[in-house]
Design a protein around this nucleic acid. Structure first.
Lengths: 353, 353
DNA sequence: CTGAAAGCGCTTACAG
DNA sequence: CTGAAAGCGCTTACAG
């Protein structure tokens, strides 16, 4: 690879002048500049940006993006938002996949070590933050921004949707469509700090608020895949005589799609017999049959806001930047998986709400 | 960030010894080594790997991975294969998103410039390679490996499935299930060098080989999304009286899922009325209704083989490495979207093949 | 407007 | 076993 030394030799001038011609052309005689540019092109010169740590003044910023589950459907949506914003701000993105089976202290350390190798100026972490990470983040000397997850540490800001309120509103939506017996497929409640578990809280609050019936059998627990949704729905169907559910809220879109298939395989129809509402609005929500009504998280905005915040943090170190959890607006996208049931035996009006 | 200078001061020894203790511990007195290690831990030292270009002997390899369409469903599957293999070989991966609207010369140059900034030792490029790239690749001084795409240049190796044969076999599969009137949804044929267009070639060869009827109206063209599949299928359905198609082969899974929805919306059933076979075996093939029968590309293996080859190229520069297109085995995954039609008016036996 | 030189973090041949 | 010093590619204050 050609260096400025090669250019200097080729053009018959010093490396100092070459450097100036390349970076501060106004400081260099026009003719000299031409010679340098010609030589650079000729020799296929690329500036070695990695020296920025040695010459502190260089200023191409880069952000390390740490993602668990790159295979998850939401990855590409979020990354796309981050990527667009990064291009806008002329920031490099360096991606690291933190496989979920490796979300230990060591896993994070590997990720951070990778990030340092690639000279990142800040870290963006997507998803849930287990408490084993706390100590590491505490001693980190570069800023961290969370996407889709929260953390009580005062050091980190987070961009996400308010999961509890969004889940609550999913229930409100079902209620407005006449549903009163509403089931849910949730992540197990073992870790209440997990934001996806908050969706159960929202569900429960919704039921309480609207004074809707609740029993243990109205909720099934499982992971967030298609098959998990399928088997969870099987449980809910088995208890249907008792619970009388006409609608199901799921913690994630893929779960919802698995649940819909289960309902169909049982000889029932979505939404005529059972309505399903998901959470996420991943692109799969738009290709399922029926298309999925779901709570839309603004992935692109979340990514973009995170980058914007990080950029500010990095480029205006003096400015007072607020820290905290920033909630972005969600909305419910109505497609085909929720029906209105005004004339059922247990209709909305019966409930005297 | 702590440097070896800080460690040297802290431990009261020279930076040379610190460097040795860190990299070649066997050259250093045990007690000194302990002191260095303690100081390093204490000061939260991370080696600045980026200096490898200055001190050529450092050896953490990294590969630049250039992907068009990160939002495409296949991205995560391929990347996951690459990523696993990279971890195995202890190689860093540096991802760059080459947005499809930017697949010009400049787009590639930005990507390569990014890759150089991050000191990659080789480039892995996924997908179709437009001919405007040729010149750039010609003058590139680091190895390039292609995934899913081909290139006639002797400089580049490629890992992929043989699209023509795979498409041919999709037709064979449909024939074995009794279909004789087979339609296709293809990418427009404008660029015959595009590997996805090759799938049309395979389709056509299959029809010829089995002496099946063909007419222009049996093929619809469009892009590779759900909606594209939907509208293409609409065309095929409109001509169904004439063509009598009982099965459709599509150039990609998402297209197939759109097509299935179109068929269902027309009041027909998949696969009882029309069978659909896709291409790719993306994860969405497993969550559609009905689940999609499709030609499986071994994404993980393709990624892994690419990394393996690159590693060999990089670590054993002496070894004679074959260049060329390496075809990996595909297979047909039978799910629910193709039916056998033995007793139809135009059955397999009628054909006297 | 241009050049010589120091310095960024680290490695390693060369002395000792 | 350890240290002083050169050198990797580049930038920039300092001279001229």
């Amino acid at each position: 690879m050609a260096t400025i030394n090669d250019i200097a030799k080729y053009a018959g001038i010093s490396i100092a002048t070459v450097s100036r011609a390349l970076n501060k052309p106004e400081l260099v005689n026009a003719e000299t500049r031409e010679r340098v540019m010609y030589a650079a092109r000729k020799l296929n010169y690329f500036k070695n940006e990695t020296l920025k740590i040695l010459n502190v003044k260089s200023n191409k910023l880069s952000i390390g993006v740490i993602f668990p589950y790159i295979t998850a459907y939401y990855f590409s949506e979020l990354y796309s938002g981050i990527s667009k914003a990064a291009k806008l701000h002329d920031i490099d993105l360096v991606l690291y996949e933190l496989r979920s089976e490796n979300m230990s202290k060591e896993g994070l350390e590997d990720a951070l070590s990778f990030a340092r190798r690639h000279l990142v100026d800040g870290i963006m972490l997507a998803g849930y933050v287990p408490s084993v990470y706390d100590e590491i983040f505490e001693s980190l000397d570069i800023p961290v921004v969370l996407l889709l997850g929260t953390h009580e540490s005062a050091k980190m800001s987070a961009y996400k949707v308010d999961d509890i309120r969004a889940a609550f509103d999913a229930i409100s939506f079902l209620v407005s469509r006449g549903h009163r017996n509403i089931g849910m497929i949730s992540l197990p409640l073992t870790d209440p700090a997990n934001d996806i578990v908050s969706r159960f809280m929202g569900y429960k609050q919704g039921l309480d608020f609207y004074k809707l019936p609740f029993s243990e059998e109205m909720v099934a627990y499982g992971k967030l895949g298609f098959d998990d949704g399928y088997s969870a729905m099987k449980q809910l169907l088995a208890a249907r005589e008792k619970t009388g559910i006409t609608a199901v809220f799921t913690a994630a879109d893929e779960v919802a799609i698995g649940a819909m298939r289960c309902i169909q395989d049982a000889g029932l129809r979505v939404p005529q017999d059972i309505s399903v509402i998901g959470f996420g609005n991943l692109s799969i929500a738009n290709i399922s049959s029926p298309k999925l009504t779901t709570v839309a998280q603004p992935f692109e905005d979340i990514g973009a806001e995170g980058v914007k915040y990080m950029t500010k943090l990095l480029t205006e170190p003096g400015s007072v930047v607020e820290r905290g959890n920033f909630y972005l607006p969600y909305k419910i996208i109505e497609r085909e998986s929720v029906a209105a049931i005004m004339n059922r035996s247990f209709s909305y009006c019966d409930g005297k709400v």
